[in-house]
């Protein structure tokens, strides 16, 4: 057993976050994916043990040749991806690149034109309900029923997710705490600010503690404090889940993600770690290097190698 003998009652809560958000710490020498999380229950586990565990586990999301046509338009064009537990995958691309469409197909809202998606081993086409049970999804714009109160809405979600009354209450309470919604429980959702609405959507997505989280622009419209809170929440949940989030904020990728996927005009143009992503910028670019790589990959202004990236 390579479990470390130390079992501190209160493990440092920032472990996962620290290694992620400060890329220039000495820890950056260790491959990033290996140090995400590392906490299971209240025990410390060595990185190696964790890595072995992760290798043993299958992919939570398996996407094969995913394609969606809208008439003549190829919104998503042959994307293949695997997302494992512990990964926080930043899904990037210009507006209209097909990010939301791809996410809608993974969550079973849209049927793909061709290709397949498996979530937690269930095929989306064959077992849509089983897939929906193991996904927490924040759709673009965080839609919610405007006439309902925050509490009423979350109770409805808990009930339709099949929790009995006592457990439903507990689940709603936990989700409310995590999304910091205590102050607006009795307010109709239509009266909430954009930031609160987004957090109601987030609470709805994490309510059943799903193994897979799909978040379409989770921090869009939030102020810097709220962004920070949502990122901490995602980081805290990351080790136990496979998380896919789309964003336009490249700093967010650096702060949060263990993996970057860029799509442009429906095609996958980059798949690698944030470090590999940044390393694609030439040395003479000194600031906003990720922006430079993003622009070069998605507009074709500069000649940069496609899928893969330096290991």
């Amino acid at each position: 057993m390579d479990k470390a003998p130390v079992a501190p009652p209160d493990p440092p809560p920032t472990l996962a976050g620290r290694t992620c958000s400060i890329p220039r710490s000495p820890l950056h020498l260790i491959p990033r994916r290996g140090i995400v999380g590392g906490l299971r229950g209240d025990r410390f586990r060595t990185l190696q043990a964790f890595e072995e565990d992760r290798e043993a586990m299958g992919s939570m999301i398996e996407i094969r040749g995913l394609t969606k046509h809208f008439g003549p338009l190829r919104a998503v064009d042959g994307i293949s991806l695997d997302v494992k537990q512990g990964e926080v995958l930043g899904f990037l691309g210009p507006n209209g690149a097909g990010k939301s469409t791809a996410m809608k197909m993974v969550t079973g809202f849209l049927a793909p034109t061709s290709g397949s998606v498996k979530v937690c081993g269930h095929d989306v086409g064959a077992e849509p309900v089983a897939v929906k049970e193991c996904i927490g999804y924040l759709p673009e714009g965080a839609p919610a029923y405007p006439d309902m109160t925050t509490e009423g809405f979350l109770n409805f979600i808990a009930e339709i997710r099949g929790f009995a009354r006592g457990e439903a209450r507990q689940r709603v309470r936990t989700a409310v705490q995590k999304a910091r919604l205590e102050g607006v429980l009795r307010q109709p959702i239509e009266t909430l600010s954009k930031g609160y609405k987004r957090r109601v959507g987030l609470a709805q997505a994490i309510l059943h503690d799903p193994p897979v989280l799909i978040l379409d622009e989770p921090t869009d419209g939030l102020d810097p404090n709220q962004k920070h809170e949502v990122r901490s929440l995602i980081r805290e949940m990351a080790p136990r889940k496979a998380i896919v989030l789309s964003t336009h904020i490249l700093e967010e990728v650096e702060a949060l993600c263990t993996r970057v996927v860029i799509i442009d005009r429906g095609r996958l143009v980059f798949d690698g770690t944030p470090d590999e992503f940044e390393a694609k910028a030439p040395a003479e670019i000194t600031s906003r290097r990720m922006d430079w790589v993003f622009r070069s990959l998605t507009s074709g202004e500069h000649a940069v190698a496609g899928v893969g990236g330096a290991a």
Partner: peptide
């Protein structure tokens, strides 16, 4: 119009 159909149809119901 409000996009809640996406929420509804990604809940585990048919």
């Amino acid at each position: 119009r409000s996009g809640t159909i996406e929420l509804l149809m990604t809940l585990p119901i048919t």
